[in-house]
Design a protein around this nucleic acid. Structure first.
Lengths: 352, 352
DNA sequence: CACTAGTATGTGATCGATAACAGAAGGAGT
DNA sequence: ACTCCTTCTGTTATCGATCACATACTAGTG
């Protein structure tokens, strides 16, 4: 057998507060206090502990701490299982924020229909105690969670108790920018392809669309759409284009917009010559489509992180200062899919 | 104050084995044994415990169990932070499998460059003890993980120790199907847009492309590409099309294919009349592109789940039977972006 | 200088489970 | 009837941290 230096085998067992205490010449409780609030210790003691910790590469056993304090450092993130390409950037932002605050984030896909979904949720929650939950998917009856375990639940995009939903303003301004952009190109009658209305983001975009259209004195050519998918966008566009005087379509996300463009193509409309299309989200591929897609660029990481901060704030009542939701960087990116409204020719040809 | 029935306040504190034991009239250790292996108990005892558990709605405190056994029920999933739309379906598959086995899955985005990334990884691992890790992103030196903590690490798509990488066969057969499909359409000289070669999937697809081309007696028009992004596909296509006798491009994923189609469009080639394009992954939008994309459909959930099972198998040496990797459902979906090779006209016009 | 209040540190109990060992019950063999 | 082994169950210690309480040390007051 090869001789292995003792040192190299050392890291197998982690140091405990007792070992740190012995090395520092203090009691284990003093070490514990050092972690809780070092300012309560005499400077000299504090330094001894610090040195001992460094030497032993001490890191606290979170399991033991949890057992005693009953506090858990695990959060639950619910993501849509149905939406195959859920923006992981948003999840990453949330996960980063959670880790920075010392929490672990457990990700669970929530899919299926009502009862099945509820059962699934219940099973997950029984699996382990969570300090809080963050849902990127609208929860049927958020009461369920609240009742089941007494933990704070934040649903992304939903207005918080102070009614200042973080997306509200920004969603509004971007929707207005879209409508203004289309109006500026001469479009008079536009339509909206909406996302599923359980989703706050979908509701906001629809509401803001309606308001912007009315504010700008344009005509609402109708609203269609049911899911977030391209297939739904495809169907919606076919429905909407029954009204041939529509010259622009604003879709609630890029996938819907892609489906809409496909439908327009099949119906013989060219984009943007006959109909302009605008999406939302700025998928990384959207700039490479033919035609490239006019859309709204968002800082998804920031959104995820901001939502997580909302949850963290709910977890720590001592309010470590709201980390400033920020103006949520969001801007309209104009590309090829939106252009001047057709010069009245199509309308006269097909209209009436 | 309103009177609240005692019952409704009950669930605040969960029952412990001691309470179960008292109610069942046995010792706490017997309850513990019931959970470990009820067959070691007398039928009558077992039943008493079972009844008491049901009555108290007992569920074990995993924190306490972990503290004692030092076993942890948390796994780490590393996902690429750079790739904005990492297939969450794969992650979902993995998460489901983990939960089914009683593990929690913590998701962490691994991004940034070498040293920064390493530091980040270290920080995460210090955060809490993990039973194992599953990486969907190629790890620079997987030694790092292995050395840091003695935990099993499985890198998705990488060959396992028995050298039967789960994607190998399947990747191979799909690449062959693609080449055969193109050959059948009359293409003689095709090119490949590869993904980053650190990724097993990218390496496999490239290798299989080369072999299939050579087996089929076709000409390799070249290989380009660096990242997974559409931008990379765009650049690669512009480079490859310097060779004007290429009539088909096989991209390692759909995003690359989208970038390539954009480049071909800008260069004045029409797809598929002048050049055929084939992708890989079957993004949900790919069917709605104009032209719709010929691609390879995969069961991403199954892949994620299968990878997780690989990890779980490594965690439990008592081998609960390999859950059968399955033939990895994977098939070529032919759509509009691939068509007959141009009838020699273009070649003669542009060639030499 | 004794007394008190406040700060800093130490001692033992505790969280809820499993581990290790000991003891009780039940058959089989002589 | 007695021993011995096997099977089942109970008692106590333990994991690594925090909590509750006790005690030692300072400093301020009359």
């Amino acid at each position: 057998m090869t001789q292995t230096p003792a040192e190299s085998r050392q890291p197998v067992r982690a140091a405990t507060i007792y070992e740190v205490a012995r090395l520092a010449g203090v009691s284990h409780q003093t070490v514990s206090r050092y972690m809780a609030d070092r300012s309560k210790l005499k400077a000299a003691t504090s330094e001894k502990v610090e040195r001992a910790m460094a030497e032993l590469k001490y890191s606290p056993n979170l399991t033991a701490r949890s057992l005693r304090t009953k506090a858990t450092y695990r959060l639950l993130a619910l993501v849509p299982g149905a939406s195959p390409y859920f923006p992981s950037r948003m999840l990453n932002g949330a996960a980063d924020a959670a880790h920075a605050a010392g929490y672990q984030l457990d990700v669970v896909a929530l899919e299926g229909t009502g009862p099945e979904r509820t059962a699934r949720l219940r099973r997950i929650l029984d699996g382990g105690p969570f300090a809080g939950a963050l849902s990127f998917v609208p929860i049927p009856n958020s009461d369920l969670l609240q009742a089941q375990e007494r933990i704070p639940v934040v649903v992304a995009g939903e207005y918080d108790d102070k009614m200042r939903g973080q997306g509200r303003m920004s969603d509004g301004s971007a929707a207005q920018a879209i409508v203004a952009h289309l109006a500026g190109l001469g479009h008079r009658r536009i339509a909206h392809i909406a996302g599923p209305q359980e989703w706050p983001a979908a509701r906001n975009r629809l509401a803001m669309y309606r308001q912007a259209v009315s504010d700008a004195g344009l005509e609402d050519g109708g609203v269609a759409g049911a899911e977030w998918s391209s297939a739904s966008g495809y169907r919606a566009a076919r429905t909407l284009m029954g009204d041939s005087s529509i010259t622009a379509i604003f879709a609630a996300n890029d996938q819907l917009a892609i489906g809409a463009m496909r439908a327009l193509h099949e119906l013989g409309f060219s984009v943007p010559a006959d109909v302009s299309v605008v999406g939302w989200d700025d998928h990384p591929e959207s700039a490479f489509l033919v035609p490239s897609l006019t859309t709204v660029q968002m800082d998804l990481e920031a959104q995820g992180s901001s939502t997580m901060h909302q949850l963290l704030a709910a977890l720590t009542p001592d309010a470590p200062a709201p980390p400033e939701p920020g103006p949520t960087a969001m801007r309209l990116v104009v590309r090829e899919s939106s252009g001047p409204a057709p010069s009245g020719l199509r309308q006269t040809r097909l209209g009436s």
